[in-house]
Design a binder for these strands. Structure first.
Lengths: 148, 148
DNA sequence: CATTGTGTTCGGTTTGTGCCGAACAAACTG
DNA sequence: CAGTTTGTTCGGCACAAACCGAACACAATG
């Protein structure tokens, strides 16, 4: 059991690179090691040695971000949590929204920079590149999802 | 001139999403609005209302990250700064290294999760997905770079 | 060789955020 | 309807990072 907690710690590092807090990353790591029955909050508390208030807010954030699912077994009165069906697809889609954000930013830049063509060129190229990626990415996802 | 500083502030928000500090993002935003002659540190200080020590360390970090170029006009003795030639290409390549990181993480997970096939399946799928993306992404970049 | 200009480094302060324990609210039970 | 269980919210503390002004190192100039 110590092996998984070591893995969980590693995972927390990696997910931290995606903007998650440390405990958020730890939760994701632990959820990677369980099956579709998921875990409940007290289990997370003891497994990760984290206060239940912290897991509560963190679970909420992960749920809002579409990374995990909250569900309840019929007849029980305690929430359980598991990874969302398509966590990583969702992660990629989140990246895509960043693409759109950057095309918007480039547009905005074109609005404030003057007529100097050399200044405009880079912003246009930035806008077009992110637009290109945003356009191509879904196809890549589709290819993956139906391909394998 | 107030228009660009408004844009700069927006840009800082966006770049903050990429792990840059606020002033780092502001610098990037301002550099998006200038030509290949770039700007120098005092200009950044006054334009952004930031201490010169802060811009110094931030410029260093951006330079180390390959986001900006430090250069000097012949005959002058003051450094100037502009965006790196392929800032956004570099940004995408950085994302790709995250892909590899996540395949590694999945491998590690497969090492600690047991034989349960349903547990293994998701980790395998995670590993394969990121590997797929890491494999396809360079081609996408190439297509963009030579296509347009 | 003194002086000025340029960039980096250092200590200290502020700001933001994560996390905790306790109080609270809401839903279920007998 | 009292008592429990479950989840969220609140106030405060602690740690990390950003930022500043001043001191510093170095190079170029005259």
């Amino acid at each position: 059991m110590n092996e998984v907690s070591e893995f969980v710690e590693h995972a927390a590092l990696y997910f931290g690179g995606l903007g998650l807090s440390r405990t958020g990353g730890r939760i994701m790591g632990l959820l990677l090691t369980v099956d579709e029955n998921g875990v409940d909050a007290p289990e997370l508390c003891s497994a990760l040695a984290v206060a239940k208030s912290s897991v509560s807010v963190e679970l909420r954030r992960l749920e809002d971000g579409g990374l995990i699912e909250r569900f309840r077994l019929p007849g029980h009165r305690r929430d359980r949590f598991r990874l969302a069906d398509d966590v990583f697809g969702n992660a990629f889609r989140a990246q895509m929204s960043k693409f759109h954000a950057f095309t918007d930013l480039a547009e905005r830049g074109l609005g404030v920079v003057g007529d100097d063509p050399v200044k405009r060129r880079r912003l246009e190229r930035m806008r077009d590149m992110y637009a290109f990626m945003a356009e191509r990415f879904p196809a890549l996802l589709d290819e993956w999802e139906q391909g394998a």
